[in-house]
């Protein structure tokens, strides 16, 4: 059985701190699994996502993402790894407002050397497929990102995360600013795409009501030994 994420005795300390922010003795995520990761503010969620994406490097221990030891890679290799294999969805989606929806979706391709080397038609094919699947019309794709509605921004953000056909998607509280209707639609859309492409998903959120839709639910207080355990009610999902 292959693991998309495999952590053992991981410790991370910010350069300005003396004590570690994150210590995870053991955590594994199987390939194709959709993980719901819950945690309070300051529990180390963002630090963990930075480690998974290779933006930060663990101070101690082992971290393997998609079978790659990120600590052994150079900074440039990690950037390339991120461009090639990872998709990131932000809270509020963080589309670049001065670009069109299409430019936002294809932005990551500029940094993906593999995508550059592959034929243009392949990228275009993937772009067309995502556009159709996510209901993004040509008219909408040509619009400035700043003019899109929240629902449209959601879909563009998902398309941007999926354009390079990533093997791991990291979603950092993408539904925190959405109302219930938009939130449910977004979750459905994202999980459907992950199922269809067998993509591993690490989804971070405060919203416990979403947990049931995911194949694995975990709490940062269980992963990170530094964080104090949450009250018993909050552990219910596990």
């Amino acid at each position: 059985m292959s693991f998309a994420v495999d952590i053992e005795s991981l410790s991370f300390t910010w350069s300005k701190n003396n004590s570690p922010t994150l210590t995870i003795p053991r955590w594994q995520v199987r390939t194709g699994e959709q993980v719901f990761l819950r945690g309070q503010s300051g529990s180390g969620k963002s630090t963990l996502l930075n480690l998974l994406s290779g933006v930060c490097i663990a101070s101690e221990g082992r971290l393997s993402v998609l079978g790659n030891n990120l600590a052994s890679m150079s900074s440039r290799q990690r950037d390339q790894f991120r461009a090639q294999y990872l998709g990131v969805i932000f809270q509020q989606f963080n589309l670049l407002p001065y670009m069109s929806a299409k430019e936002n979706i294809l932005l990551g391709q500029r940094f993906n050397k593999k995508a550059h080397k592959s034929s243009l038609s392949k990228s275009e094919e993937r772009y067309q497929y995502l556009g159709e699947t996510l209901g993004l019309s040509q008219k909408l794709l040509s619009q400035q990102a700043s003019t899109l509605s929240v629902g449209q921004q959601q879909r563009v953000a998902v398309a941007r995360a999926l354009i390079s056909n990533p093997q791991l998607i990291i979603a950092d509280e993408p539904t925190s600013a959405l109302d219930t209707e938009h939130r449910d639609k977004f979750i459905e859309l994202l999980l459907n795409q992950c199922h269809a492409d067998n993509t591993t998903l690490v989804f971070v959120s405060h919203d416990q009501s979403l947990a049931s839709a995911f194949t694995q639910q975990t709490s940062m207080s269980l992963l990170n030994t530094i964080v104090e355990p949450e009250p018993p009610v909050a552990h219910h999902a596990n």
Partner: peptide, 16 residues
């Protein structure tokens, strides 16, 4: 910060 974070997430290295 937001723009930089997006670019980093998409694979832009710091020199970019």
């Amino acid at each position: 910060q937001r723009e930089i974070a997006v670019l980093r997430a998409l694979g832009a290295n710091a020199s970019v």
